[in-house]
């Protein structure tokens, strides 16, 4: 509660893309597994951050909770300024359909569909008509550098290309945040680099992206690294670029974030 830097104050006045406040996730069992043990985290709009940590440290669990695919046992989750902790299935689905884009290690493309239709699926549950979905999908595929592969099916694409299609699907609806779980986990180093380059490019174009990886080297190329161990945040490099993120937004808008952010900073400073 002591060291409030100018950067912190700027943060508090903006609406973060994502905010976790003292999130605990326990899987039932004997004994129960505490996969997340009091995680607080704030991701500003326009950030590109890596979550690193050893296997079993709780990275995927954290990403699932952030993406509303799983409910925390306790704690609060805010996405794009909304407290979604109390949301039911329908509203959580709406959050996923409009505010979140997922990228998975296994791509999860639907085999019987062209790249274009796979990407268009990113808008399926937003209720857009097919034609509009396809136009947006084509634009997204062009953004990820696959303009020449629109009609190809997943089995006609390389691993790197498949992941590009998956990334296009994750950004086609212009989400508040893209959550990627080991996006390069199934790729060779050249393809991995290309994917990271693509993520950098999307970040520069304004996307907010959170990437899970256990590759420290890969993580070090990103502006921010959040290190997780045993369900807790171990270190978090200060978000350096977020000073301008909230410019123009009235102060006190996101007051609930205050305590959590301070705690987070304190914890980071304690290391």
């Amino acid at each position: 509660m002591t060291k409030a830097s100018p950067a912190t104050i700027a943060q508090l006045t903006s609406t973060p893309a994502l905010e976790l406040i003292d999130i605990v996730k326990e899987y039932p069992g004997t004994p129960p597994v505490r996969a997340l043990d009091g995680v607080s985290l704030r991701v500003e709009d326009g950030e590109l951050a890596a979550i690193v940590g050893p296997s079993g440290s709780g990275k995927s669990t954290m990403l699932h909770v952030m993406g509303t695919l799983d409910r925390p046992t306790t704690g609060q989750l805010r996405i794009d300024g909304r407290n979604v902790s109390e949301f039911g299935d329908r509203r959580l689905s709406a959050v996923r359909s409009q505010l979140i884009g997922f990228v998975f290690q296994q791509f999860f493309l639907i085999d019987g569909m062209s790249a274009l239709d796979n990407v268009a699926n990113g808008l399926l549950y937003a209720g857009l008509p097919t034609a509009k979905r396809r136009v947006a999908a084509a634009e997204a595929l062009i953004k990820v550098g696959l303009a020449h592969r629109l009609g190809h099916f997943p089995n006609q694409l390389s691993g790197g290309e498949r992941q590009r299609v998956a990334i296009a699907r994750a950004i086609v609806h212009d989400p508040a945040i893209v959550l990627a779980d080991e996006p390069t986990g199934n790729l060779d180093s050249a393809a991995s680099e290309a994917i990271m380059e693509l993520l950098h490019g999307l970040h520069q174009a304004g996307s907010t992206i959170l990437v899970i990886t256990h590759d420290r080297e890969l993580a070090s190329s990103l502006p921010r690294q959040i290190s997780v161990r045993d369900g807790r945040i171990e270190t978090d490099t200060s978000p350096s670029h977020s000073n301008d993120a909230g410019s123009g937004w009235p102060a006190g808008k996101s007051a609930p974030g205050h305590t959590a952010s301070s705690q987070l900073l304190n914890r980071a400073n304690d290391e």
Partner: peptide
């Protein structure tokens, strides 16, 4: 894709919807 900050006002959350077709 939009640049710049988002807010509650910038984006109304519509319910998920699957068209009959």
């Amino acid at each position: 894709m939009s640049d710049g900050p988002r807010s509650n006002e910038s984006r109304k959350l519509k319910p998920s919807k699957l068209r009959p077709a």
